[in-house]
């Protein structure tokens, strides 16, 4: 049972990561690419870590939890840093119906 669950989590993690990579290629501008690439990956990696933890002993489970917490803290910060840099450089959004409530500030 554990092996099946572990396999499901592995496949789920790989699927999420693959979608993240494809999203990076498909999305038209830096902001939308950020959503696909940086953060969709978080859940993918967590699924892979959970799969590993199912097989492992206490030390591996602890490591998986610590890595998950580290990713939960650093992924949004990295995405914010890239997003803020793009916004300050006034990177355009390449979708005609995109909304920008800060456009009057520029």
């Amino acid at each position: 049972m554990i092996i099946v669950l572990s396999d499901i989590l592995t496949v789920l993690g790989l699927a999420i990561l693959t979608i993240g990579v494809y999203g990076f290629v498909r999305m038209p501008d830096v902001y939308t690419q950020l959503h696909a690439a940086s953060k969709a990956g978080f859940l993918g990696i967590v699924a892979l870590l959970a799969s590993t933890a199912l097989h492992g002993d206490g030390a591996i489970i602890t490591r998986a939890v610590l890595i998950t917490v580290l990713l939960a803290l650093t992924t949004p910060v990295a995405a914010h840093a890239i997003g803020r840099a793009a916004h300050r450089r006034e990177e355009p959004m390449h979708i005609s119906e995109a909304v920008d409530e800060t456009v009057d500030d520029r």
Partner: peptide, 16 residues
């Protein structure tokens, strides 16, 4: 996000 990436949901109104 997954639905939008695989074209099952529109990507029409992103924004700030």
């Amino acid at each position: 996000m997954a639905l939008r990436v695989v074209h099952l949901r529109d990507l029409k109104h992103p924004g700030v």
